[in-house]
Simulated scan of single mutants.
Amino acid sequence: MRWITFDCFGTLIDWRHGIGTSLELIAPAKGDDLLAAYLRHENDVEAAAPRTRYREVMAEALRRACADLDVTLNDDDASVLATTLPYWPVFGEVGAELSALRTAGLRLALLTNCDRDLIAQTLRRLPVPFDAVVTAEDVGAYKPDEAHFERFRKAYEPAEWVHVAQSHFHDMIPARRLGIRRVWINRHGERPADAGVVREVLPDLRGLLAAVERA
């Protein structure tokens, strides 16, 4: 079986747009600043409490971001990201590229830092079906912990496997440690110090099938 695993948010779903526009609802004109502050905190919250549900991770990271910027956050507004997450937009090229992988006979899976109920709602927005999903809730850990990858490998024993993701930190680094072939979707033009360890790099998913075959 030939498998392609994906990160979801940032790779298939435009989570920065989703978070930024959601935060505008509670703090008009401060969405971009809150997004930047939120991104600084989310990894720390996940690392400190890896068994915490993702909806609670988002709420706590938002509380910290608001505190940084002296933004008043009402208690019932802390759940805004979990509420809006199912409506965050899919990147425009995703449908065609996933369909091409399907046509080529590849199986598709998600390895996501998310809860089961939230990813179930997101799957309804993705334009092709997925054959498997591994969540942070399933493994009791958040990437860059290797638990997602280990669970997938044990459950599906892929004969060939390429992992595709936007986050160098959360996905490329652990995939490299485990010897998994990988394609980096570098949507933000990042230049990490060890970027050279990923041979296949694309600015978005266009041309993904060819990159997967090279990998």
Rank of each mutant, 00 (worst) to 15 (best):
P89G: 02
A100P: 10
A193M: 11
G207C: 14
A78W: 02
S22Y: 03
R125G: 14
L35A: 08
T72Y: 14
W88D: 01
V164H: 04
L39Q: 15
R16V: 05
V212T: 04
A27P: 00
L118H: 03
Y156R: 06
P174A: 09
R116V: 10
W161T: 01
I185S: 06
T72S: 15
V201D: 02
E160T: 03
D68F: 09
E56L: 12
S22W: 01
G92E: 13
G140Y: 10
V80M: 00
L106Y: 15
R102Q: 08
D44C: 08
T5F: 04
R53V: 00
L85F: 08
L108C: 10
V198L: 05
A215I: 01
T52M: 15
H17D: 15
L208V: 03
I19Y: 09
A37D: 10
A215W: 00
R153V: 14
R124T: 13
R153E: 12
T5S: 15
P174H: 06
V57H: 07
A132T: 13
R116I: 11
T135I: 01
F149A: 03
P89H: 00
R181S: 14
V183G: 00
D14A: 10
N113R: 08
L39R: 15
V133D: 05
W3K: 05
A78G: 02
V164F: 05
Y87F: 14
A165H: 05
L126F: 01
K154Y: 07
V197G: 02
M58F: 04
R206N: 13
L23M: 11
D44F: 04
W88T: 04
H170Y: 04
A100S: 15
C114Y: 00
V162T: 06
T112C: 10
R176I: 04
V45I: 15
T5P: 02
A49T: 14
I180A: 00
G31Y: 04
Q121L: 12
R63L: 11
L123D: 11
K30P: 04
G95M: 09
A120T: 13
A47M: 09
A29H: 13
V134D: 06
C8S: 12
A104I: 05
E42T: 12
L106V: 10
R116P: 05
E190N: 08
A65L: 12
C114I: 12
P158L: 00
P203V: 11
P129R: 01
L62S: 09
G207V: 14
A59G: 00
P129H: 00
G140P: 02
R64V: 00
K154C: 03
T83V: 13
A47Y: 06
S167N: 06
V197L: 14
L110Y: 02
R102S: 05
L209G: 06
L209P: 08
R182E: 03
A109V: 13
P144E: 12
S79C: 07
D131V: 03
H163L: 10
L85Q: 04
